[in-house]
Design a protein around this nucleic acid. Sequence first.
DNA 1: GCCGTTTTCGGCCCGACTGTTTTCAGTCG
Length: 575
Amino acid sequence: MPVHNEDIAVIFDEMADLLEIEAANPFRVRAYRNAARTIRGLGRELSEMVEAGEDLTRLPGIGKDLAAKIKEILGTGHAKALDKLHKEVPASLEDLLKIPGLGPKRVKVLYQELHIKTLKQLENAARRGKLSVLPGFGLKTEQRIVETIGAHRSQEKRYLRHVAEQYAEPLVAYLQTIKGVNDVVVAGSYRRGKETVGDLDILVTAKAQSSVMQKFVAYDEVVETVSKGTTRATVFLRNGLQVDLRVVEQQSFGSALHYFTGSKAHNIQVRRLAQQRGLKLNEYGVFKAKKSIAGSTEASVYKAVGLPFIPPELREARGEIEAAQAKKLPNLITRADLQGDLHVHTNATDGNASIAEMAQAAKHAGLKYLAITDHSKRLTIVHGLDSKRLQQQLDEIDNLNSQLTNITILKGIEVDILEDGKLDLPDKILSQLDLVIGAVHTKFHLSQQKQTSRILHAMDSKYFSILAHPSGRLLEERPPYEVDIPRIIEAARERGCYLELNSQPQRLDLIDSYCQLAKEEGVMISINSDSHSTNGFDLLEGGINQARRGWLEKRDVLNCCSLREIRKSLKSTMG
DNA sequence: GCCGTTTTCGGCCCGACTGTTTTCAGTCG
């Protein structure tokens, strides 16, 4: 069984949880969590780094001890230190930590006093009124535990950003109508453009006598108010989404926005810089002794610690501070840089509009070209195209191109990569296309070795242009299939082909860290909508968010090229 | 457990809200 970075991160997080319950040194606990975060954000497999003889202690937050534990886990699949902890603290106690209001101290009391180990036992004890007599517990705590377990709110749920947006925008608009309110910004992972969000963090600047807190908890989608003070409140919306509101004064807006945008790891790094300069940074400003020296804008905060403004999408502690110090921050791509879309479906397969309608919609979306890339015959369920039907489509495209102005249709296909790595249509028809997008739609459960060589074999075809949704993941639904993406990126460079960043909200595949890797390796990314209808081009915005998180600039993205340039790039792929 | 042009010890980011207290610990972000 290969050990992946996520497996190691999970072990470190578990150790942190259990150590916390044991009341270990909090900084030791933090060290494990930091390491888990570093590992999740690596973008490369630790197993490969070890194999290549790289020094793991050069990674931030990984020292001698944790490097040894990583090697132990890679070798044996588990850590002795965790096994030892399990003998002292039952693993199931971790589940209790997920209950809001229960932290390590209370979980420890529950275990020691009442031998509670599971959620079921906790619920029973709470219902029988056994908790309220424990030290540090009371009636309210007991009641909330019963409610939380009853509402199944104990397991963490994340929302697609695309979904959260539909709740965030009306709420922001509502808050903006309140008297005395100035700025309303959704901060947090939402502002950093993450593909999913756990909650919404909304930051507001308002006059002191504003009624914003009252009005916020009275919003008609709010079903529960968890807490409400003068500057901070937490509520749940009807769909289960948690929303935190923070109110600050105008002079603190920048520092508060920075603070609540995160990420946590980024903030810690920036705080350290402040400390090194003898400054204190918190959500109210940057302070020298007691005097505020910055904080009204984010730029002023960064400037105070000697940095240029860092775009929110980069704030993940993945090298952005160092890049900023070296004046090497990327000039991130924007939606306006996109000139075309290279992955679009029509009603010939599973889309719901004609080629002409899709072309008009693309033009309306400000694009100069689009590639029609319907499915190939293997996908019978969507009535995939065989050579004959594809040929008809090509004739139709020639016909349309002779009539259309300011938009050009490219001839393409989303061809299935079969289990043996062959493409689902013969070279004879593929050779007539402007581009060939290859995609895996079947046999997701192959071993990593087989899945990877399947794709590499497909990329050997001289007609292969772009690998669609490279990992096959569907967020909150299906994990990525086992595939060695760094190896694929390497092969794409050798063979002169490209990887897709698919903009469908549940895909957003390639992920950010692999975009960054592709960029470093000199492999261009194609940001495509995978549109199935005329309003599908709106989704490109989500792809741009992800691309920005992956440090991509205009020059790193294939479809930022002009039509003339792209024809040249694709032609060179065609050997 | 990590880290270091204030280095190998002694720090480690910081504040709000709640509930259980009676001045504050625990939790959360």
